[in-house]
């Protein structure tokens, strides 16, 4: 698309939307948000970039192949689900480790498998949607 306004605007918009997608990813589980919505927003940011500068540029900006990203995401999500078996819980049970306390109210922050699962979902959604849209963009 040869519009200088769109190209110039896209640079700011892409960065903003992408950061917002990460915010949505980290906000998930306890509040509205999560990996799926974050992944959609992340994909939108790259699609805007691809519309402004061409999908070749967008692929370069992504650095890795979107299909590979989706498969790695699937692997991460799977691993996050299976890890609970090491702690003797049924599979896909969330594992929580609270730092500086022992529950949601008192702890400063937590290390948990739920976020890892969400990151996996994020990557699956991002990679899956981008591989489809890039393929469409390059075919036409």
């Amino acid at each position: 698309m040869n519009s200088i306004i769109f190209t110039a605007g896209a640079r700011i918009l892409v960065a903003l939307v992408f950061v917002f997608s990460l915010f949505m990813l980290l906000r998930g589980h306890h509040l509205p948000g999560g990996g799926f919505i974050g992944g959609l927003l992340g994909a939108i940011s790259f699609i805007v970039y691809a519309l402004a500068c061409g999908s070749e540029e967008a692929r370069k900006a992504l650095r890795v192949s979107p299909e590979g990203l989706a498969m790695v995401g699937l692997g991460i999500a799977l691993a996050a689900g299976l890890v609970s078996a090491l702690f003797g819980d049924p599979l896909f049970t969330g594992q929580w480790y609270w730092v500086g306390g022992d529950s949601y109210e008192t702890a400063l922050f937590s290390i948990n498998s739920v976020l890892v699962f969400d990151i996996g979902v994020y990557l699956v959604v991002l990679g899956g949607i981008l591989s489809l849209t890039f393929a469409f963009d390059e075919e036409t």
Binding site: F36, G128, L132, A135, F136, E139
Partner: peptide, 23 residues
Amino acid sequence: LTAIVIGFGLLAFTLALAFEAYR
């Protein structure tokens, strides 16, 4: 939500298939 996501994936795939078939 799940059904929409799955439907989206399948229909996008079908569109790609239709395009390739047309080509």
